[in-house]
Design a protein around this nucleic acid. Structure first.
Lengths: 148, 148
DNA sequence: GATAAAAAAGATGGTTTTATCTTTTTTTTT
DNA sequence: AAAAAAAAAGATAAAACCATCTTTTTTATC
């Protein structure tokens, strides 16, 4: 589930962890060594096994790359160069809510809008634009990433 | 929990139902008759008992008004004339997430922002502005409200 | 080939959200 | 006063989300 307004967070936990992990991998893109789950989990202060599941899912969808065995781990390769925030959100939480009615009404359209439709149109388009234009590989600037 | 981006909806189910119910009450503001849970639930096609809980909570927080007994029900009175979307969201889902870090990082600030901070700043401010400026009593225009 | 490291996968449990059922309280009408 | 209508409240359950533990598979190194 992805709730943009109500709730404690704009992204789900899974999605937050996923984004932070991918940005972390992007920061290590230069190095030719892989990064293990443990190392990422320790750096970001997130539950290791939960993060493992998330990385597996990202890898299955080819948003990140992985190698098994000793010296194995995860990395961002050329295949992952164009991955955007929208890719990650949709991978973790399903198709983004940003195109469906904000009140969940199936018959809400531009022609027959719900009472909130026009009020949120601009902000929602802005969010969509940001999500689809943010290539995670470019989000590296040494800013705050880890918590606690 | 209120997730603005990830998940299926921008608002939680509770919040969606709450907003739709309050707008429905606003449409009946003119009438001096109260509206019962059953009538609202039928009109909006939402689970009656779940909606009852939601209306109780809205009533406890004085966002809507209620009377018990025969011919009882809910209504929007003068006390509720200034209720905004933000009031409803915070009543149902707690203080909005729109001021906390989008990645859930406790040490993210304007001076030491997370990698997403500036990208989402504008849209988030827009959402906040809409939520706090939308008085639900004014959202009545006969638009689509019920689902199914 | 044996060992070890690491991702992948399977199974299980806790918490929150969503939803339903039942009982109680309030209040109007008869 | 009795009956009925309706909100209020309590208890329970299903589903989704969050998290952990265990086992399996892959693969590099010895």
């Amino acid at each position: 589930m992805l709730n943009l307004i109500s709730g404690e967070n704009m992204f789900t936990k899974s999605c937050q962890y996923a984004i932070r992990a991918v940005i972390f991998l992007a920061e290590n893109q230069a190095s030719d060594k892989n990064t293990g789950v443990k190392e990422i989990a320790d750096a970001l202060h997130v539950p290791q096994q939960f993060l493992a599941k998330i990385l597996q899912q990202l890898s299955r969808h080819n948003l990140i790359s992985s190698v098994k065995g000793p010296n194995g781990g995860f990395y961002l390769g050329e295949d992952n160069a164009e991955v955007t925030l929208l890719d990650i959100v949709e991978c973790m939480d399903g198709k983004s809510t940003l195109s469906t009615c904000i009140l969940g009404l199936p018959n809400c359209t531009n022609e027959h809008p719900c009472p909130l439709h026009h009020h949120f149109y601009g902000s929602r388009e802005g969010l969509k634009a940001t999500l689809s234009s943010c290539v995670v590989g470019a989000l590296v600037n040494g800013q705050v990433l880890s918590a606690k």
